[in-house]
Design a protein around this nucleic acid. Structure first.
Length: 456
RNA sequence: GUGGUUGUAGCUCAGUUGGUUAGAGCACUAGAUUGUGGUUCUAGGGGUCGCGGGUUCGAAUCCCGUCUUCCACCCCA
């Protein structure tokens, strides 16, 4: 009397068709990463808690899956902590390990730990699942894949340019057109905070600003007020809400706004370089857009900030994000190593592609041809051809049982196998095979060499 | 973490103010068809109505709890 089995909230099983389609996206991304000169690494699914905790802000810590210690995990908990329900204290006593929350922080740990074996600048890519104890919604899961490409050990802005091109390449290869790569710079945000005198509220300020296109400027102001940003500062921010036009027009108005801030002006310079260079080099299908309100993401970005929005006809959160971080390896004891990277959200890209019908039909074709099984003697004859075809790299199968033909054909049909091969008594006598095209219904009699050629 | 929403066959869903053995389409299995599938016809299998408790003579239907789904916050891929 067992209950129906189930899987945890926010996780999924993938059936063969889904896996095949996911692999198609993985392959496109992996090939692009390779072409851009990135090398693959992998890190463990779980890290020591202190590697992860405190790197994503307070909210992030809450969303990290903690792993309960083995054995008597209560041993180190003090009665005091229990009595006062000191959750952070208890948590650190009963859990020493945690599932990775993203790929960037483990990568920073990897770089620091292996610094003597790494040749800098180091370009690595990493495609692995991450886990977040978030409440699931559409496109939000508790287990999902990230595909990251990062460069550490170079502060050249050419890296940012290449990463924009990498985004463009991947989405163009996937035939996912009209994505928008949004670009901003943390220094610009710092500059704004500086100019309006709200430096101490930078995070609250940027989080509020980020919601501009979603909740409108009045609500943004309201949230800033709630977070304790002065009325004077909010007033000074006003011109920012009307920064519009082309990228260069936006940059011009930003220059006016931020002329008093050295940091801000440096951010604008960086932004301008990336925009101008991409403008010169061109993109094949994506659009690069300056968005000063873009502030999402993790607190560790110090320079460029990227985010990719899906085509506007699909309602989906961002399908990629990234940026430059100067201090991340510093947390682990390696100073002056700048890094910049981007991430692709595989699961969301999948949903977008599904919604837009962008998966090529050929992706689902796994087996090219199925031999009908007529009996023991005929199966032996067929099996010789099966081996020959497989050696040529062609995916073929023999139906395992001498079932009725209708059943065997139906099996091929449902699995989307495009060809069926009949090898029965008549074919054996003439040393031939009958090849049937399942789509057109057309049949041909061929010898083994012709068969190989036809199916290649 | 806060507020709301959803759950009936493998899938998509009906199920009247609580009232007999809970239905449909698709899918599945078998046959019509002993070397021809995707379109037809016939028959069949499959559900302790998410789970647990309560109200009632009687619960898929009402109440409570719990899990799940999706949505809005929070935050984010």
């Amino acid at each position: 009397m067992s209950n129906k089995p189930s899987i945890p909230k926010g996780t999924r099983d993938f059936n063969p068709q889904e896996v095949v389609k996911r692999n198609y996206i993985f392959d496109v991304i992996r090939q692009a990463f390779t072409r851009f000169g990135f090398l693959p690494i992998e890190t463990p699914s779980f890290e020591n808690s202190d590697t992860l905790m405190g790197k994503y802000g307070e909210e992030g810590d809450r969303l990290i899956f903690k792993i309960l210690n083995s054995g008597d995990f209560l041993r180190k908990v003090s009665d005091d902590d229990l009595k006062t329900r000191n959750i952070p204290g208890i948590t650190s006593s009963i859990s020493e390990k945690a599932l990775r929350y993203d790929l960037t922080v483990p990568f920073a740990r990897y770089v620091v730990q292996h610094r003597n074996e790494i040749d800098f600048p180091f370009k690595r890519y990493q495609i692995q699942p991450v886990w977040r104890a978030d409440r699931p919604q559409k496109g939000r899961f508790r287990e999902f894949y990230q595909c990251d490409a990062d460069v550490v050990g170079s502060d050249s802005l050419w890296q940012e340019v290449e990463l924009v091109q990498l985004y463009d390449t991947v989405f163009s290869d996937l035939k996912l057109r009209n994505t928008t790569i949004k670009l901003n710079n943390r220094k610009i945000l710092s500059g704004i905070a500086e100019v309006i005198g709200a430096e101490d509220k930078l995070i609250d300020f940027t989080v509020a600003l980020d919601k501009l296109d979603k909740i409108g400027k009045d609500k943004v102001k309201e949230e800033m007020r709630e977070k304790g940003i002065s009325e004077e500062a909010i007033e000074k921010v006003e011109p920012l809400f009307s920064v519009t036009g082309t990228a260069s027009e936006k940059i011009e108005s930003l220059k006016n706004l931020l002329s008093a801030s050295e940091t801000g002006m440096r951010g604008i310079e960086e932004l301008e370089f990336i925009v101008n260079t991409i403008d010169e080099l061109g993109l094949s299908s994506a659009k690069l857009e300056v968005d000063v309100t873009l502030a999402r993401g993790l607190n560790y970005y110090t320079g460029a900030i990227f985010e990719v929005a899906a085509p506007s006809e699909v309602k989906m959160g961002s399908i990629g994000g990234g940026g430059r971080y100067d201090d991340l390896t510093g947390i682990f004891g390696l100073k002056d190593t700048s890094g910049v990277g981007i991430s692709f959200g595989l699961d969301r890209i999948y949903l977008v592609m599904e919604e837009l019908g962008l998966f090529p039909e050929t992706v689902l074709e796994t087996t090219r041809a199925l031999f009908v099984n007529f009996g023991e003697k005929e199966a032996m004859y067929a099996m010789r051809a099966v081996s020959a075809l497989r050696e040529e790299g062609i995916a073929v199968d023999l139906y395992p049982d001498p079932a009725k033909m209708g059943k065997q054909m139906g099996y091929a049909d449902k699995r989307g196998i495009p060809f069926v091969i009949l090898a029965g008594e008549t074919e054996i006598e003439s040393n031939n095979y009958t090849l049937k095209n399942m789509r057109s219904g057309e049949q041909k009699t061929l010898d083994i060499d012709q068969l190989v050629n036809e199916l290649k």
